[in-house]
Design a protein around this nucleic acid. Structure first.
Lengths: 244, 244
DNA sequence: TGAATAGTGTCTTTCAGACAATATTGA
DNA sequence: TCAATATTGTCTGAAAGACACTATTCA
């Protein structure tokens, strides 16, 4: 074990791309880093994130959840690990491994706080599947990857429901899909797919609304948020040619 | 910054689930750990893996590729990051973050070597989408996740071609799909899907074979191995209802 | 009653899945 | 010619996609 004095120490961190939908657009939460002389990204916008703390976090996902709670004052209904970034150029002091996550939250549930080492937190709209601003570290890459992952998961799961509250109507869910995918979808097919996938259960109640028919309120069946939504593909559930 | 003496140091490691197809079955490469008194998993079978080394590896993927090369004597045509496991119970000495990877290799390209700290390396068949043996660390979880990821990616990409050589026939590719998915697939539909997805280009040559029509040899078009293979889903490329 | 939106009916096109027919090779 | 496998043709049913129709609500 030749331990070189010049070697950096390893550190573990979590970054998290927190998404919500407001004003008819997908938004992502960014924080402004405090002004500090020894920080190469001083004053820049970045994803919320923080170092792993052994006394608080078992898994690195716990770090992401802890940071998210600190920034938003709420628990995210959906957090998923995205990709792990490790690179000696990331930080001058340590060899930092950053585990990127993404989360989906209903806009109403959030009360923004600037977290530790940051001076401001705000929702920034996602346009053309990216964020214009130049961010600290390699956060632009994480953001782009997170957006891509969310859009891709939408194609085959119903996770977008987590951007709404516990209960939501099918037209609301459809609108979220249209916003994120950036195209109009057919409500007939959308509703039929939801029925066939059997992911929603009715609350029996209807939304409040003005001047038109009220939509029925639904919630996810247990575990159905990640179930296959549009299961068409190579292997069909109905396939009769199974081997032994 | 209160630095507790009792805190472990952080370490970064890569583990890699290396798959191949031989004898009509999916196989995974396992290594036997050396017998050592201070190793809680002494003598157990495990995934190939190793610690990140700052002087050799920039990204953690470099660690995975380095380990893979040492074990197999070859470069894998396909390596992908899978999931990152971090847990204080993983190792008594350090807080180890292990970045799990998976790789696909043609069987013929591999010459197995027992790597550093291991006494044996061998291919073990995957049965019922898992590996029976009890493995060191949390490697059974990594293995199951890797198998699941490979099967799932097969549904919408053509990456299974990397289990064959540079050039392969469509019947060979079909067989790999049938082996991994565990069911018979229709060759008509399979071929038509390959054509529609436009992922293969002909070499103009045919395979050698005995007593029957020879199949045409294909290779991937550039980047087509990860292109969408069965693109049917919510949003079609042909959709004409795009928004502004 | 009319505007607005929810929800359903139905038609067409596409494609998965099944199977048949033809093509090529070596014995 | 025959066995074996590759490759292509064709039919059927299910689902995608488009659009029209009915239902409900409030002004």
């Amino acid at each position: 074990m030749s331990k070189n004095k010049s070697q950096k120490e390893y550190r573990l961190a979590a970054d998290i791309a927190i998404f919500t939908v407001k004003d008819q657009a997908l938004h992502i939460l960014l924080v402004k880093r405090a002004e500090r002389d020894d920080d190469p990204f001083s004053g820049m916008w970045a994803l919320p994130g923080g170092f792993h703390r052994m006394e608080l976090d078992d898994d690195i996902k716990d770090t992401a959840i802890r940071v998210l709670k600190a920034e938003t004052g709420a628990d995210a209904p959906y957090v998923e690990q995205l990709y792990t970034f490790s690179n000696k150029k990331r930080d001058p002091r340590f060899y930092v491994t950053s585990v990127g996550h993404f989360a989906l939250m209903p806009y109403q549930s959030v009360r923004l706080n600037a977290g530790h080492g940051t001076t401001e937190a705000k929702w920034v709209p996602v346009r053309n599947n990216t964020v214009k601003r130049k961010l600290a570290f390699d956060h632009n890459i994480i953001v782009d990857m997170a957006i891509e992952r969310v859009r891709s998961k939408l194609q085959y799961t119903a996770i977008a429901g987590h951007l709404l509250g516990e209960e939501f109507t099918r037209p609301q869910l459809l609108e979220v899909y249209e916003i994120i995918l950036g195209c109009k979808l057919d409500k007939t097919h959308f509703n039929r797919s939801l029925v066939r996938a059997d992911v929603l259960e009715s609350t029996g109640r209807k939304e409040e609304s003005k001047g038109h028919k009220r939509a029925e309120l639904f919630r996810f069946k247990d575990g159905a948020d990640t179930a296959l939504f549009f299961p068409r593909g190579l292997v069909r559930a109905s396939s009769k040619k199974d081997e032994g």
